[in-house]
Amino acid sequence: MRNLYLTAFLFAMALFNTAFANTGIALVHGTGNPSDAYNSYWKSEFVESVRQGLDNSSNLIVVNCNFDKYMWDAAASGCLATQLHDFITSKNIDDLIVVTHSNGGNVMRWIMSNPTWDSRYPRIIDSLRWVNAIAPSSGGTPLADAVMQGNMFEKVLGWILGFKTDAVRQQQEAWMAYYNANWLLGTGGRPSLPKGFWTIVGSDVESAMWDRDSYCGGYAETVGLEVTQNWLDGCSDGFLNCSSQNAAGSVWFYDKDRLRGGEPLNHNQSRRKCFNLDVFIRNDI
């Protein structure tokens, strides 16, 4: 009975904290080095739709960092920590929701899994309510494997297939298996992350020419992702297998279970205003 009272008390405290907290939201992009992720990565329609869920509409930040680098690099997690820390400090945010896409989930998970790496990390973790990770590449992707396999280094030629970015190397499945087992939390057999890591899983690519839903986010991109599905499982979004997307944290929902018309989200659509994805993110605030 005592435990019941304690749980009820903590639950009430949590609700109280959430209700009276200063809530902020950060959008964290995936692989790449954007200087204007608002327009180039997410697009304004998505960001502005999500912003409507905030009491104070200025409490939103769109992060711009170099995620072509390894997740532990100062240009990646160091940059993300700087932008998140400055955001919560300058705006007195004590209830931070972080929304990540793709490899952005790995960089955020690096911060959450290695709290002593940087003296700013504990403050960021303590301010977090949770992370909503859209299509995170937690288990890597066979596409990174495909492009790295056989890419030998020869003294005269250098890398015979050309140099691949650190982020591509990092997202090989075997590399992510190592990092998940040693440096990252939240996957099977590992301790949980210090705060929730809720995943939205994209499970298919639909590219029928007559279906207007195939055009959301761009038809050419959708067709390209349908092609690259050949290297992936039946359940995949054109870049990641579902097993990679749900490898860490807890599943919030699969695309077809919640989105408008039971539509699947391909890897490009999962960062765009497609099939009410933005509404789910907004209402979660």
Binding site: L10, F11, M13, A14, D126, R129, W130, G196, S250, D284
Partner: peptide
């Protein structure tokens, strides 16, 4: 997710110095 908030609050009690 609410269940997780409870435990998130527990984690927030964590000592970070």
């Amino acid at each position: 997710k609410l269940k997780a908030v409870t435990f998130a609050s527990l984690a927030a009690l964590s000592l970070a110095t």
